[in-house]
């Protein structure tokens, strides 16, 4: 736990105070800090780790970044499910690189969360015990090879729609992590689209496989943007803090508008009879989303919730002896096995 608490508190106790009451040396009070924070956010400046920030802002960020990081590493599983069965060596290389990127993105995001005074160990613990969530989309199974394509096109497509605005998020380390993630992810969606295109233009069996995958992934992808704006618990405050830049419904609409012509080019249909262009609104109308399913999956009743978490927990538990061995080796040979542990600062 040494790594956890030390992050923002070590060195300058005045700044470490979590209760929001500590004033600066000149004691102008919390209000002065709050005003400076508000002004920085209003001016589109970035908040950095050692700046004062409201407790709720910090808590919101930890929750969101952790959930994002967890999604990356849980999201490795449905795709890794097909690495050993990838039907060509080219596809196998692409898929391995993509799953590897997801591990890397998880790492970037855990680092960003750690700048807020938590530790990866602590966050993983919360994931493993179900106290923190990951994106519900990964509780759906990958049943055929085409699912790898559908994930790339639709799930990564939805993720990118969500993530691009996060590159301008008010919290510096999160925004920087997202810049890196978005840059690297640009190939993820394209490979998925290309994969589906090959199937759609392939044999009748391949085409059917692609259509089936799109049918199963379409609605869950739309749910990735979260509940409708009028039911979204955190949206308004997050938008005020510029953690979030666009509403759930706005991003969902944008995504649907992007996907419709892409599906046409693929030669595949989207499984929504109500989907049609609305000239007046300048957007597509689409059918009602099954929010009961969304809530059920969120609650743990999705097809793979149990499987995903137990695989993650198992990998972590079975790896404990390896992590212990390396720590023990470092302690023996450097006499400072934990020397990096109590970071006084982050940039």
């Amino acid at each position: 736990m040494a790594t956890a608490a030390a992050h923002q508190t070590a060195g300058t106790p005045a700044y470490g105070a979590q209760d929001g009451t500590a004033g600066p040396a000149g004691d102008t009070g919390t209000d002065a800090y709050q005003r400076a924070f508000d002004a920085a956010v209003a001016a589109d400046e970035r908040i950095e780790p050692r700046d004062w920030m409201p407790d709720a802002y910090r808590a919101t960020l930890v929750r969101q970044i952790a959930q994002h990081a967890h999604s990356e590493i849980i999201g490795m599983q449905p795709e890794a499910n097909w690495i050993t069965r990838a039907p060509s060596l080219r596809r196998k290389a692409i898929l391995m690189a993509k799953v590897q990127d997801e591990a890397g993105h998880g790492l970037y995001l855990y680092s960003a969360a750690e700048t807020l005074g938590t530790s990866r160990e602590e966050l993983l613990d919360k994931l493993h015990s179900g106290r923190q969530k990951y994106s519900s989309i990964f509780n759906y199974p990958t049943l055929t090879w085409a699912d790898v394509g559908a994930i790339g096109w639709l799930v990564d497509g939805a993720a990118i729609t969500n993530q691009v605005p996060l590159c301008r998020c008010s919290y510096g380390p999160y925004a920087r992590a997202m810049v890196r993630v978005c840059k690297e992810e640009s190939f993820h969606q394209r490979q998925g689209y290309e994969l589906l295109l090959a199937l759609s233009r392939g044999t009748p069996e391949q085409h059917a496989m692609a259509q089936d995958a799109v049918n199963r992934w379409w609605w869950p992808s739309l749910m990735m943007f979260g509940p409708p704006d009028d039911e979204s618990a955190h949206s308004a405050q997050s938008m005020a803090w510029k953690i979030k830049r666009h509403s759930n419904d706005e991003l969902r609409r944008r995504f649907v508008d992007i996907c419709v012509p892409q599906a046409e080019s693929l030669g595949l249909t989207l499984p929504d009879p109500d989907l049609k262009w609305n000239e007046e609104r300048g957007h597509h109308d689409f059918g009602p989303i099954d929010w009961t399913e969304f809530r059920e999956v969120l609650k743990g009743n999705g097809p793979c919730n149990e499987q995903r978490i137990s695989q993650r927990r198992q990998a972590h538990d079975e790896g404990a002896w390896v992590r212990e061995a390396a720590a023990a080796h470092a302690a023996k040979h450097t006499g400072a096995g934990r020397s990096g542990g109590t970071g006084a600062t982050r940039s």
Partner: peptide, 29 residues
């Protein structure tokens, strides 16, 4: 090595093992 994806003892090793697997796959091709 590709079978390790999602099962490595620590995230940093997920990345390292995948790097090696990708190098080898490139050589094989």
């Amino acid at each position: 090595l590709g079978e390790w994806a999602g099962h490595a003892p620590v995230l940093e090793e997920e990345v390292a093992l995948a790097n090696i697997a990708l190098d080898l796959l490139g050589q094989a091709r």
